[in-house]
Amino acid sequence: MTELWDGLVTALKLIISFDPEVMAIAGRSLAISATSSTLAALICLPLATVIHFNKFRGKRTLINIIQTMFSLPTVAVGLFVFVLFSSAGPIGGLDILFTPIVMVIGQVILISPIMLGLTISALSGVDKSIADTAVSLGASRFQMAAVTIREARFAVLAALIMGFGRAISEVGLSLMVGGNIQGFTRTITTAISLETSKGDLELALALGIILIVIALIINIVLNRIQQR
């Protein structure tokens, strides 16, 4: 039990003193996950509206597949991305393995199904008469989609936050394709894994607490934006 308490105390000390290494690790985690969440959102929001507003064969199956991919194991995505970007792999020539860039690519693959699937659910929850009304008032297809997204904004934001949460909390992918390089690809979760293997449980716990604090701040900020 003392370890938990010591972890909390260490976390507070590291935060209050702006420990440069911890701040750099936290900033890096935030930067990588925020970038991947933004990219994933830019892909998923339009794609979700296209899937939602169109009727086509196999739509149900497609949504089932997307929902199944919510359970993609992070290490499996990590292995896939590793093999893809390894020098011996099909696009190894880019030479970006063991950099933050490839971590972002991996996270986009990892979180896109969640953002996509939950955004489709969010749009399905909007009363269809809203879209119909918009059309009858002369709205273009694009405007109709915008109105529907606006109606569903709470649920859409929840989808984005879920995606971000998965990105910043995953460790398997970051370890495998990032390499946990100090000062370059070490994030909060890979640092926790390293410190735990070193037996420095207090620092590991402290980093865990810092991750939760970051998630809390992000949530507060997004919720404030949404309520405007």
Binding site: G27, L30, A31, I32, A34, P100, I101
Partner: peptide, 13 residues
Amino acid sequence: LVIASLLIGFAGC
């Protein structure tokens, strides 16, 4: 904050 963390996050690429 966002710019600072991006600078830290991708520094040295």
